[in-house]
């Protein structure tokens, strides 16, 4: 499905990601974990086209066999063509627009094609009406899935934090992705919201979309991930099933080491 090979990202003299290679299989929830500053978000930004990697390649294969070289595509095409959706660590909703509008904007490319690129629909022509109805249906489906149907017409910025996280995931799903990339989706959630999120993610996976998620906290990912990649200082230190990773001495060392650092910082 997704094959990252020899990915390296340099900022000035600093190697944020160093010769990283891993694979994510179709239909899996793959988690990338590691201590703070391990290069998770950087790797993620390379995959979703926000950074152009210094070296290495990222290949995505669709279920129908089409292959995309993500490292060489402009940012918006990765979402539009390669169908890779993402969310952000610090939620990026269209805060002033309504919940429903957020979901419709995500279907921009589909709807735009139906408008005859904006021109015909101004005069009420074209097949826009049916396309819009389909778009609203899809939006309603996801609103039901995240339990926000009642709040469809409220500004997205007025939702509580947990709901904003779910909405951001629903919005990403509205582009019909083959792979959904989540940047610390559980950050800031309480245990109940966190559990709801797990259910949502499992449901998305069972719907046929592969997931790639970054987590800082190992506990969250252990329960739902099929496959875990552990980074530290930009390098891969472990790769395998949750059970295998948990038992890996290198992982334990990295996390214990980090705990020591935290204590040192606090002191």
């Amino acid at each position: 499905m997704l094959k990252v090979s020899n990915l390296t990202m340099r900022f000035g003299g600093l190697k944020a990601v160093d010769d990283l290679s891993f694979e994510a299989r179709a239909g899996d929830i793959t988690a990338v974990i590691g201590p703070n500053g391990a290069g998770k978000t950087t790797a993620f930004n390379c995959i979703t086209g926000f950074y152009r990697p210094t070296e290495g390649s990222i290949a995505l294969t669709h279920p129908d066999g089409a292959t995309f070289a993500l490292a060489r595509m402009p940012g918006h095409r990765i979402a539009a063509r390669a169908k890779v959706a993402r969310t952000f660590q610090n939620i990026r909703l269209f805060a002033g627009m309504t919940v429903l509008e957020n979901l419709l904007v995500a279907q921009h490319n589909t709807l735009m094609r139906a408008t005859g690129f904006g021109v015909l629909a101004v005069f009420g022509l074209g097949r826009y009406r049916s396309a819009e109805a389909a778009g609203l249906d899809k939006a309603r489906f996801w609103l039901d899935a995240i339990g926000l149907t009642e709040r469809a017409n409220d500004p997205a910025g007025s939702l509580p934090y947990g709901a904003q996280r779910r909405l951001e995931i629903a919005r990403a799903m509205c582009i019909d992705p083959v792979m959904l990339c989540l940047d610390e989706p559980a950050a800031g959630l309480n245990p109940r919201e966190s559990e709801e999120l797990n259910q949502l993610l499992l449901r998305i996976r069972d719907g046929g979309c592969s997931l790639l998620l970054i987590e800082h906290d190992m506990g969250v990912v252990m329960r739902i991930s099929d496959h875990i990649v552990v980074l530290d200082h930009g390098k891969k230190i472990s790769d395998g099933t949750p059970a295998a990773v948990r038992a890996d001495p290198a992982v334990i060392a990295a996390y214990l080491g980090e705990a020591d650092d935290d204590e040192a910082d606090a002191a």
């Binding site: 979703t48 086209g49 926000f50 940012g75 918006h76 095409r77 990765i78 979402a79 539009a80 063509r81 959706a85 993402r86 952000f88 990026r92 909703l93 269209f94 805060a95 002033g96 627009m97 509008e101 419709l104 904007v105 995500a106 279907q107 921009h108 490319n109 709807l111 735009m112 408008t115 904006g118 629909a121 101004v122 826009y128 919005r171 990403a172 509205c174 582009i175």
Partner: peptide
């Protein structure tokens, strides 16, 4: 008219958050 069409909605989305727009394939 345009405001109620995808194009106009994309404009407003752009005003709100350009990075998010890019992540949605706009």
């Amino acid at each position: 008219r345009l405001r109620r069409l995808p194009l106009g909605r994309a404009w407003e989305a752009l005003r709100e958050d350009e990075v998010a727009c890019r992540s949605l394939g706009i």
